[in-house]
Design a protein around this nucleic acid. Structure first.
Lengths: 339, 339
DNA sequence: TTGTAAGCGTTATCAT
DNA sequence: ATGATAACGCTTACAA
């Protein structure tokens, strides 16, 4: 009843009002002004649902996050998402987040989401190798942008941190600090970044001609609990590592807790490093040596790629982002061989 | 074209198909079966946007979170939201989250959100005294449920933790441990829970006939940085507290960091407690003594109240939830007066 | 029990 | 430059 009312009020047709409101050129400027003014006064606001139905666009970008039912949004994506959302908001798009639970069928949830008309595009996080979600999105020609690279991805649909380089650098640095026994608590290997990181770690180890005990290379979820268990396992080996690299800061925190519980002094007896530079990582004790990247740029990059896709924008976007080591206390400086 | 197609395919009218699909009773059972089967085969799925326009319902519940641009969802609500979302999902509703940035007009963002047709109801967090958001929602008769109680709230639209009791208990417990100099780093007073907590703190102090130095009662945002600054301030007083209560665990972490930086040993020289029992709070060193509540029940409570409102359900819901103290290492046990 | 037809509030394609 | 009018895909009186 609304544009209709406005039109009636002005003695114009719906079409003219619609055109005036939506910035079309074929409208008399004076008419447009009148319409805009009246709309202002009456407090007219277009009904987005109707707009959506008529135009087929929603101006929403969606993301489906796995809720391990303990947290809604993991720290890993929190900052990137904030940046992505802010950039989108500035272009009059909203980021909307929903969750998927373990008891739900992933393909179904994604399909419902993209076919709901709720969103014009989706972000994918925790990209997996040969990700079935992406296969589905492709099949339905639905716009998507991934955080995480996999083979054959095209530059218009992903951003990623150079995880291989990051863990190569991190590993190499620890080697230069004197470490020869370096463990790596990696994330689940199905995630694309896990393999990339493993590659960086292995390369640095090989180049330094260090042997890699396969028992030092474990995989687990990105949380404190899993990390504690893996750390206990590793530290009970006869050949203990003097350094533990972790896939993120929550794991580093768990690893630190496990070491402390075993009476090792982190930062002295053993070095531990994480990834992600979470909010709290500079405040824990010891504070966590970690790897950070520009979450703002990454988030904006995702949004730019999305707008390039759905609005034919021409934003220049970097696909790859560099990570930098942040040295903190969980690091050891002077390693005096104590094994 | 879709229900139309399905109808044509079946030789029925759109209305009959619609009724069959939506579980109306005035449909021949055999017809319904036929329709359901055909829908299944053809892979028909109703267009939610059209449904929304025609029915005025979206089956989405929304929440707008403040993004301090560093994190997307603060730990404070992460667990509650996960529980709320899961309960909603089981009733075929989705929780959708969007953010508001500091440069945006709050009333505008909320109004756009509720008038967008995107959501049937909204959750309000960080409830403020005389909250203008609630005034607006009431004015527009838009369904809402608050996490946080304020005067005159009715039982159908809020859940809350008994913050007064929680901080009364916590303060009293510290007093019983021997503390007489207890500081409290509270959240901004505009938030309803801040005043409630302050009340609990004050009551316990008064009952114990302890004097309250107003300089021990500060307010700041729920993050490590603000907490550090406040802690530095407090610890530079001539009359230093031997115990610092914090409005949440991020503040507790900041307070701990500040104390350590000043060479106080937390858990020995000084006791620090937080609130919320965040994911990491049991893993930091010292681990954080905190106050926990059943985030699952609270989240479900919010969702139940919402469904009661928008679907006339009759879920029994507790408005108030009890908090429990979790003792960890940041506590001091044996206080041997050292001031 | 089923069908007809009028919405829901826009946009978009024609004419005029 | 403006106006009819037909979509968009569904729901819902009201009729049959």
């Amino acid at each position: 009843m609304s544009i209709k009312k406005l039109a009636a009020h002005l003695g114009l047709s719906k079409s003219t009002v619609s055109r005036a409101l939506n910035g079309y050129t074929d409208v008399n400027e004076q008419t447009r002004e009148k319409v805009l003014k009246a709309a202002q006064e009456i407090g007219y606001r277009a009904n987005p649902t109707a707009k959506r139905l008529a135009s087929g666009k929603s101006r929403n970008i969606g993301i489906i996050l796995p809720a391990h039912s303990r947290t809604f949004v993991s720290s890993a994506f929190s900052k990137v998402l904030a940046a992505a959302a802010e950039f989108l908001a500035k272009h009059d798009y909203q980021l909307i987040v929903t969750t998927i639970f373990e008891w739900q069928d992933e393909q179904q949830v994604y399909y419902d989401f993209i076919s709901s008309g709720l969103v014009d595009g989706v972000f994918i996080v925790r990209t997996r190798h040969q990700d079935p979600r992406i296969a589905m999105l492709k099949k339905h020609h639905f716009p998507y942008v991934c955080f995480g690279f996999d083979a054959n991805f095209t530059n218009d649909s992903f951003v990623d941190v150079d995880n291989t380089q990051a863990f190569y650098d991190l590993t190499q640095r620890q080697i230069m600090q004197g470490h020869t026994h370096i463990a790596f608590l990696d994330a689940p290997l199905e995630l694309t970044f896990s393999l990339a990181r493993k590659r960086g770690y292995l390369q640095a180890m090989h180049e330094a001609h260090l042997t890699i005990d396969p028992r030092w290379l474990l995989n687990g979820e990105l949380n404190e609990h899993d990390a504690m268990k893996m750390t206990q396992e590793i530290m009970s080996l006869v050949q203990r590592p003097t350094c533990i690299l972790c896939a993120d800061d929550t794991m580093a925190l768990g690893a630190i807790a496990a070491c402390e519980a075993l009476s090792y002094q982190v930062g002295i007896d053993i070095a531990i490093a994480g990834y992600g530079d979470y909010e709290y990582s500079g405040y824990t004790k010891p504070s966590i040596t970690t790897v950070k990247y520009d979450t703002r740029l990454v988030g904006e990059g995702m949004s730019k790629l999305m707008l390039n896709k759905i609005e034919d924008k021409q934003f220049e976007v970097n696909n790859w982002y560099e990570a930098m080591i942040v040295i903190r206390q969980s690091d050891t400086y002077l390693l005096t061989n104590k094994i």
